[in-house]
């Protein structure tokens, strides 16, 4: 065969999506059933794949205990923002349909091993988990609910950061959510922050980083600035482990890295130490 001829790759045994999942970590083909049974954690390489908000809720809470709050709070379009790929309002509406949640965070009351909590879970599928005004409002209302019910607040973050399409209003959600978190702490209530893959930018620089405990999953990306921006700034390649959960823990900004299957029990244990 001449060197320039493309070798015919055998297409005969390409697995179908119906049966297999390709692990984004090690590229291994994992049977879909096994993938689901392991809550999207790769049995080969321990890659913790991203979860939709409702999958995360199911994993962390007692069956049937979750009651959504403020479902009617959704995105706003204060800038009437349009870029080269279209209007923000259209994209946001499409994301509501796609992610099955009205904003990039799902909030509600729930029980974790019988301990009543207020829970907020972000969904990266909704515009990259970006922090919009609806996100900020839902988190503020969740924090106020925790205070009213005297319950711990738990936020599971998954976000690329602020939502550019809402401009300065998005930036202000960082201050708004942190003000609400400050009140939860003043009320003497626990605030546990779980930083999942990825938690970066304006979300890491606001509520995600100020938990009584900051908790993460193995290998989750956690950081302020993006890798590419930093590499351009320092004109050097960054090591592979830069901005991983393990790196963040080693630098003193995480309390614990907890495997997904142990997370619920870990939260319950911590909440009991906090007097619940």
């Amino acid at each position: 065969m001449a060197w320039f001829e493309k070798s015919a790759e055998a297409p005969a045994r390409v697995p179908t999506e119906a049966i297999w999942v390709v692990c984004p970590g090690c590229k291994a083909y994992i049977a879909k059933e096994a993938w689901r049974a392991a809550d999207k954690v790769c049995p080969r390489c321990n890659h913790h794949d991203r979860l939709a908000c409702r999958e995360r809720v199911a994993l962390l809470t007692d069956a049937g205990s979750f009651k959504e709050l403020n479902a009617e709070v959704s995105f706003n379009d204060p800038l009437k923002f349009t870029d080269s790929s279209g209007a923000y309002a259209d994209k946001a509406k499409a994301n509501i349909a796609k992610a099955g949640v009205g904003e990039s965070v799902l909030t509600g009351t729930a029980a974790i091993d019988k301990i009543p909590v207020v829970l907020a879970v972000m969904d990266f599928k909704f515009l990259g988990g970006s922090l919009g005004s609806g996100t900020g409002e839902r988190i503020l209302l969740a924090a106020e609910k925790a205070i009213a019910l005297k319950r711990p607040l738990i936020i599971v973050s998954a976000s690329g950061g602020a939502r550019m399409h809402e401009g300065i209003v998005s930036l202000m959600q960082m201050a708004k959510t942190c003000a609400a978190i400050a009140r939860v702490k003043e009320a003497g209530l626990p605030y546990l922050s779980i930083l999942t893959d990825p938690t970066t930018g304006g979300v890491s620089a606001s509520y995600a980083m100020v938990g009584d405990l900051n908790i993460s999953e193995p290998k989750a990306l956690i950081g302020f600035a993006g890798r590419r921006v930093i590499e351009q700034t320092i004109k050097q390649k960054l090591p592979d482990d830069f901005q991983t959960a393990e790196y963040t823990l080693a630098h003193g900004f995480l309390d614990h890295i907890v495997p997904r299957k142990e997370m619920k029990a870990f939260l319950a244990k911590v909440l009991r130490y906090a007097g619940f």
């Binding site: 890491s204 950081g223 600035a225 050097q236």
Partner: peptide, 22 residues
Amino acid sequence: PGSEAEARGQAEAIAHNLEFMS
């Protein structure tokens, strides 16, 4: 946006200020 700023917790430093100033 530098690697040392990340190592020393740029995100935490800002977040803490937002909370504190409120």
